[in-house]
């Protein structure tokens, strides 16, 4: 059964059609990637799925229920959690207090919520930083905090918007197993990601968005070899040029 089903979602900003009839599905237990060049509309699509923007057209189904009209906090209560591409910490609060806000969604009592928050912090590697101010965290720390807060709501579906952006290669290597472990304990994930190493490593299925449209979808290796995808990233004719160079290289060898 598919956990999330977005049906031909569109969003218009004045004269710009940022998302144009994009559809995608996240099956239960899936780890799905959403890639595409800058300005393709990935974050807008995320905002439509999580309810932060109302679509100009199309529907969103979550757990078999039509949630197109539900506000973000209701979707979170149903089990959909998101992170923000531009991290949004509660800057004046400690790491523990930040995560606690998420944990309170399912645990009204303080003791239980604190226990959940601390467990989540340990899971994403923020255990030693619980008492630090969120504003004092490094970029990598803030990304982990975004992840921890979302996880503390105990979601069924986690929407990750570029949690790896801005991290150095060793930090990326550190966090990939964390994401895999989250999926392995039953949380389905839809992730926007530019770090291809992570996408190839983690995702079982990838959707490619370009100029607001879904242009390809399939297993990561197939999709990255798709001429339409190469052209979307590198420009018209790029796929043919690369193929020609490949053939030339082959001829020389």
């Amino acid at each position: 059964m598919s956990l999330l089903r977005a049906e031909s979602l569109s969003r218009r900003f004045g004269g710009l059609l940022a998302v144009d009839g994009a559809s995608l599905e996240v099956p239960e237990g899936g780890l799905i990637g959403l890639i595409g060049p800058n300005g393709a509309g990935k974050t807008t699509l995320f905002a439509l799925v999580s309810g932060f923007l109302a679509p100009s057209g199309g529907r969103v189904h979550f757990l078999g229920e039509d949630v197109t009209r539900e506000p973000p906090h209701r979707r979170a209560a149903l089990g959909m959690a998101r992170t923000f591409q531009i991290v949004q910490p509660f800057a004046g609060l400690s790491v523990r207090e930040n995560i606690l806000v998420g944990a309170y969604l399912r645990h009204p009592g303080r003791e239980e919520a604190v226990r959940v928050a601390e467990a989540v912090a340990t899971e994403v590697g923020l255990g030693p930083m619980l008492d630090q101010q969120a504003s004092a965290l490094t970029v990598a720390g803030r990304k982990r905090l975004e992840l921890a807060r979302a996880l503390a709501t105990e979601p069924k579906l986690l929407l990750l918007d570029e949690v790896l952006a801005g991290l150095n290669p060793s930090e990326v290597r550190d966090i990939i197993p964390v994401i895999r472990a989250i999926r392995d304990r039953g949380v389905s994930i839809l992730m926007i990601e530019h770090v291809m190493q992570a996408v190839m490593n983690l995702c079982d299925h990838v959707h490619v968005l370009a100029s607001g449209r879904m242009i390809a979808s399939g297993p990561p290796r197939e999709v990255t070899a798709d001429p339409r995808v190469i052209e979307a990233y590198l420009g018209h004719g790029a796929a043919a040029r690369i193929a020609a160079q490949g053939a030339e290289g082959g001829a020389h060898a």
Binding site: F52, P71, F84, P89, A91, G92, L93, A150, A152
Partner: peptide, 13 residues
Amino acid sequence: ENEDAARALGVDV
């Protein structure tokens, strides 16, 4: 501190 972040964590602002 941050209304959008609160909303994403299930807070009815």
